[in-house]
């Protein structure tokens, strides 16, 4: 169980003078479901954006399956402005665009749903299969890749059936109810055949029943698709039920870490949430 899938080492993300993540180190091991929680604006989404290459961390390194995939240290103007620690620790500079990260096997969903607006449910998922193509442009245009295309369509259909979206497959993605859009985002991420799935507040906007169903669903896909899941969530019931381990951050800094019981009883966490913890959104 201790095979390392994702590791963050001393990550600091500074926007101008704002330190959004401050010296954050964490690990996610194979087959685990790990949660990242913290009050609004704590820097959770920013952590995902650093891992997926949307932002370039100011300092620190990211490892995927024990290989360094991203690394940086304060450079240029940032050298003077840098307000974090460990400035001298990292000498490598390694950057990747988000598509490269995805092709390594890390897929994500977005907190503010980002579906392809002009496409149907089916097309949204099928589009995510583009990454796995072997055909070139001419082969694809002249339909020499019909086997690959048929394969992609079949896998897409299977995914939609698995996620209960097959009955709405020809509807515009944006016409779906909110909850189904969240499932569609997960379907689209799964279509890239990831090993590590990053979910950014998948239960946002869901009622307690829906949240419970989602909790069971995430567990089941973890087993079925052999996934490791790193999840940001505000619904504490879901977090406590689902997580093998939990990381808590506040103002970009790690304030607690451990099993659900340990974190629940941690003074620092209770203080940070100041009674906000059991709220229902």
């Amino acid at each position: 169980m201790s095979e390392n899938v994702l590791k963050l080492e001393n990550i600091t993300m500074q926007f101008g003078g704002v330190v959004a993540i401050n010296d954050l180190s964490l690990e996610v091991n194979k087959g685990e479901i790990v949660s990242l929680i913290g009050p609004n604006g704590a820097g959770k989404t920013t952590v995902f954006n650093v891992i997926t290459g949307v932002y370039e961390a100011t300092n620190g390194a990211v490892y995927y399956e024990d290989k360094m995939i991203l690394s940086n240290h304060p450079q240029g103007k940032m050298k003077k402005m840098y307000a974090g620690t460990d400035a001298g620790k990292f000498s490598d500079v390694m950057t990747k665009t988000p598509d490269r990260i995805t092709s390594l096997g890390i897929a994500r969903t977005f907190q503010n749903i980002r579906l392809f607006k002009s496409m149907t449910v089916f097309e949204n998922v099928l589009t995510a299969k583009h990454m796995l193509r072997k055909s070139n442009l001419f082969g694809a245009a002249l339909k020499l890749n019909h086997r690959e295309e048929a394969n992609a369509r079949e896998e897409t259909m299977q995914l939609l059936e698995r996620l209960g979206l097959d009955d709405v497959k020809d509807e515009l993605a944006t016409s779906l109810p909110y909850g189904k859009q969240r499932y569609l985002e997960i379907a689209r991420a799964l279509a890239t055949k990831p090993k590590l799935l990053l979910l950014d507040e998948p239960a946002a906007g869901m009622n307690p029943q829906e949240t419970m169903a989602l909790t069971a669903f995430i567990k089941s896909i973890r087993d079925e698709f052999d996934l490791t899941v790193f999840i940001i969530e505000h619904h504490m019931n879901l977090v406590m039920d689902i997580s093998d381990r939990i990381y808590v951050i506040d103002f970009g800094k790690l304030i607690s870490h451990g099993s659900p019981e340990e974190v629940q009883n941690d003074e620092a966490v209770i203080k940070a949430y100041l009674g906000v913890s059991e709220e229902d959104e």
Binding site: T52, V54, T97, P98, D99, T102, S103, A107, R108, F110, R114, L115, F116, K117, S118, M119, T127, A128, H130, M131, L132, R188, A189, A191, T192
Partner: peptide
């Protein structure tokens, strides 16, 4: 079309 609809999502899907 994915790029037209949402660059960030397209990139996250490996495009």
């Amino acid at each position: 079309k994915a790029i037209r609809d949402d660059e960030i999502a397209a990139e996250a899907m490996g495009i």
